[in-house]
Design a protein around this nucleic acid. Structure first.
Ligand SMILES: [Zn+2]
Ligand SMILES: [Zn+2]
Ligand SMILES: [Zn+2]
Ligand SMILES: [Zn+2]
Lengths: 137, 137
DNA sequence: TTTTGGTATGTAATAACATAACATGTTTTG
DNA sequence: CAAAACATGTTATGTTATTACATACCAAAA
């Protein structure tokens, strides 16, 4: 399996984004968890190596990673997951198991097709679109 | 237009849910705003008539209203909207205008079909499905 | 009618999540 | 190098949500 960190290095090299050690460390922590991670959990993990880490430290790193397309925010959980396909167009659907917390990311929501992972049983869906209404366009 | 509060009364009468004065008041406040409302805004509005209102007061009322299918939580905004069709099956999609804050709720979430309101331009979508994965079923 | 059980609300405290504002350091670029 | 741009450190505070326990209320059972 292609390493998420190497992909991130490549992607950032291409786009000019600066994947600093701190940001890379946060990405590593998010990617290593195979479940959505909370910001303050990341913070306490960073703290083990860098006592100066404070909330803005981790939120800024996460903002960078999200902008770079390396991490997604899971809105209904206030948590974060690493994107398995860094740099894709980014209309991603997440399938989150409420038992084991595993997240499957599906891309390219083509109308009509159902991209639901095999065997996944959906209990609740969050579907929110943000943009401009006809009046405000 | 049929009154949301009357619909709520009817629905609760049918299901046996107890739409108490406090809950009805919160629903009224959510319904009157024609935009997503924050819990603490509701709280301060309740406070004008009921000085004893505290955070659990409004969160409990909102939980009830959500369970009853009268209100939806807008996950990416930490806010709440009244459901225009109380009691529908409830896989709702929300289209939120980032300029005027108007929310359009569309139902019948066949993930394939596109129910986008006419003229709405989507900039960002939040699509999260919660349930059980194949391993955990 | 008293007791009991269930549901709703009151109340205090705190947990959990997130950002503002400003200072300091580090890298890039002209 | 110097200036500008970017990144991080630091303090404080703002915002959102829950826990835990007490009290009130209502209706059925004893
Ligand atoms: Zn992705
Ligand atoms: Zn699972
Ligand atoms: Zn609805
Ligand atoms: Zn609008």
């Amino acid at each position: 399996m292609p390493d998420i960190l190497e992909d991130a290095d490549r992607l950032c090299a291409k786009t000019g984004a600066r994947l600093t050690p701190l940001r890379r460390r946060v990405l590593e922590l998010v990617a290593r968890a195979n479940a959505p991670v909370k910001a303050y959990d990341l913070l306490s993990q960073i703290d083990r190596t860098n006592t100066s880490a404070k909330p803005p430290t981790v939120y800024r790193a996460l903002d960078f990673l999200i902008d770079a397309g390396l991490v997604h925010r899971v809105e209904a959980l206030n948590a974060f997951v690493a994107c398995p396909q860094a740099g894709h167009g980014h209309a991603a659907m997440l399938y989150v198991c409420e038992n084991c917390a595993n997240v499957t990311e599906v891309q390219g929501a083509r109308p009509g097709q159902d991209h639901k992972p095999d065997g996944f049983t959906v209990k609740r869906s969050v579907i929110e679109h943000y943009g401009l209404c006809a009046n405000c366009l």
